[in-house]
Nucleic acid binder design. Structure first.
Length: 486
DNA sequence: CTAGGGTTAG
């Protein structure tokens, strides 16, 4: 592991002895003013991130040049700023450069890096960092382990992991550690396990706070377990844990999902009565609720309400409205709304383009969709798995399987690996176009670990069984038949 | 002074 990291380091960082003194020969000192300035930037950025990535990298170079004048804390602040911007791999890379330059690090720095590795789904690297820090005499603490636990591929195992850590007297678990695990479990819809961890937490004498309750409420909402939601909300009251704006957004979302927009409106009313301010997320969620029911007028009214409450609509607001327009008023009206938004200063992201591309594909305007898609790189946007998948679906619907397969190749070339939705859509496209052998090939590929280890969803399975039932005598179904009926 | 948990759109 250490070797592979070393290999990926820039040459300059791998050979620190080339420059043992500050690099710039012309400037012989860093002014006190500049140093203070940098420290001010770092303090701010460690809390809310840098303006942009380039700023952070320039600052890092400058600090490297005058590295004896900056402390561990300063460098850690810089990494923290990168984490706030979700540039985890950059943070990891800078950390290794720091090590190569013999810049001191501490438990805070290392915990940050472990957290980054886990966010990048590189838990093995996280564990080897853990070993590395222990070898160098740093003691991991509850924060370090929280980062690691979030990276465990099986959140169910996390429960046992925590119990072991407690038994070994390695940590005193706290509310953040437990909440992190509860979050992982709820995201996988393992709400009962999350509730088990919740009770573990109480047995250890750790009090739940509003974040913990929000996570559980959210998990229960996804499964429509309303009685338990009610029970938890009452419990919060008894325990003197005040619901916050996250609680409101979660409940608004839950009601909207099942079509109860009026109840969602009531949640917002009650939030305001608690003299808590709904934020842009709360209002966006409510808007989405109206759009889901095809009530564009209601959604537009929410935009006015939020403005009057001093909440500024954001790019998500635009996205929800555009999608609502696509589905209710047609993609052409959505496109003109989009252009109007652009004139008003909207800088679209990949999500916005995804909405439009999807709208165009669903309307059969495939060539327009392809033009938007192909234009992405010129505006420095990278299509993600979903964008690719929508285009692939568009091609499949028109029977253009060669084009769909070409996109599959393209996404693999761009290291944007297909997920199970991509495969299922492509396989369904093959079946509908009677390319049964091709479908079998894709099925083989997707189920291997190298293909992602995916499986067919129920829709694809039904389609295949249907074909096997109705086209009994078609010899081209032989491979399919072998796969499914033997 | 620096590290860990939560809400919305395709």
């Amino acid at each position: 592991m250490a070797f592979s990291l070393r290999r990926s380091m820039p040459l300059r960082a791998a050979f620190p002895f080339i420059h043992n003194t500050p690099l710039s020969p012309s400037t012989s000192s860093l002014s006190t003013t500049r140093r203070r300035e940098v420290q001010t930037i770092l303090l701010k950025s460690s809390k809310s991130g840098f303006e942009n990535l380039g700023d952070a990298l320039h600052l890092f170079d400058e600090m490297l040049q005058w590295r004896t004048l900056f402390s561990v804390v300063n460098f850690t602040q810089l990494l923290s700023g990168l984490v706030k911007m979700r540039h985890y791999s950059v943070a990891v890379s800078l950390f290794h450069q720091m090590c190569a330059w013999n810049i001191p690090v501490n438990t805070y720095t290392i915990s940050t890096v472990i957290n980054c590795y886990c966010r990048l789904n590189m838990i093995q690297c996280g564990f080897s960092m853990l070993g590395w820090m222990i070898k160098r005499g740093f003691r991991p603490n509850v924060v370090t382990y929280t980062g690691l636990i979030k990276g465990l591929s099986s959140p169910v195992e996390a429960r046992g992991f925590i119990k072991r850590l407690i038994r070994l007297n390695e940590i005193e678990p706290d509310v953040v550690l437990y909440s992190a695990v509860i979050d992982r479990l709820c995201r996988k819809n393992f709400v009962d396990q999350a509730l088990d961890v919740f009770s573990d937490m109480r047995q250890e004498g750790v009090d739940a706070n509003v974040v913990t309750y929000n996570l559980l409420v959210q998990g229960l909402c996804k499964l429509n377990r309303w009685e338990e939601i009610d029970r938890l909300l009452r419990e919060m009251d008894v325990m003197n844990v005040c619901p916050d704006v996250y609680t409101s957004s979660i409940l608004v979302n839950a009601y909207c999902r099942v079509g109860r927009v009026e109840d969602a409106e009531n949640v917002i009313k009650m939030t305001i009565e608690r003299s808590e301010c709904p934020n842009v997320v709360t209002y966006n969620t409510l808007m989405h609720g109206y759009c889901l029911r095809g009530k564009i007028d209601g959604a537009v009214a929410v935009v006015s309400t939020m403005k009057s409450m001093g909440v500024v609509p954001d790019i998500v607001t635009c996205g929800i409205l555009l999608d609502g327009f696509c589905k209710k008023n047609g993609v052409d009206e959505a496109m003109s709304l989009f252009h109007e938004m652009e004139r008003n200063g909207l800088i679209p992201n990949i999500y916005i383009y995804g909405i439009l591309i999807n709208g165009l594909c669903n309307d059969g305007q495939l060539s327009k969709a392809k033009i938007l898609f192909d234009n992405l790189s010129s505006i420095r946007l990278e299509p993600d798995v979903k964008t690719y998948t929508m285009m692939i679906q568009g091609f499949c619907q028109k029977g253009l399987l060669d084009e769909a397969n070409e996109l599959l190749r393209q996404m693999e070339a761009e290291n944007c690996l297909p997920d199970n939705v991509t495969y299922n859509i492509l396989i369904r496209g093959c079946i509908q176009n009677k390319k049964y052998n091709e479908a079998c090939g894709l099925m083989d590929r997707m189920c291997w670990p190298s293909g992602g280890g995916f499986s067919l969803d129920s829709c694809t399975t039904c389609m295949i069984l249907d074909v096997l039932g109705t086209e009994k005598d078609d010899p081209s179904t032989l491979a399919l038949r072998k796969k499914f009926l033997t």
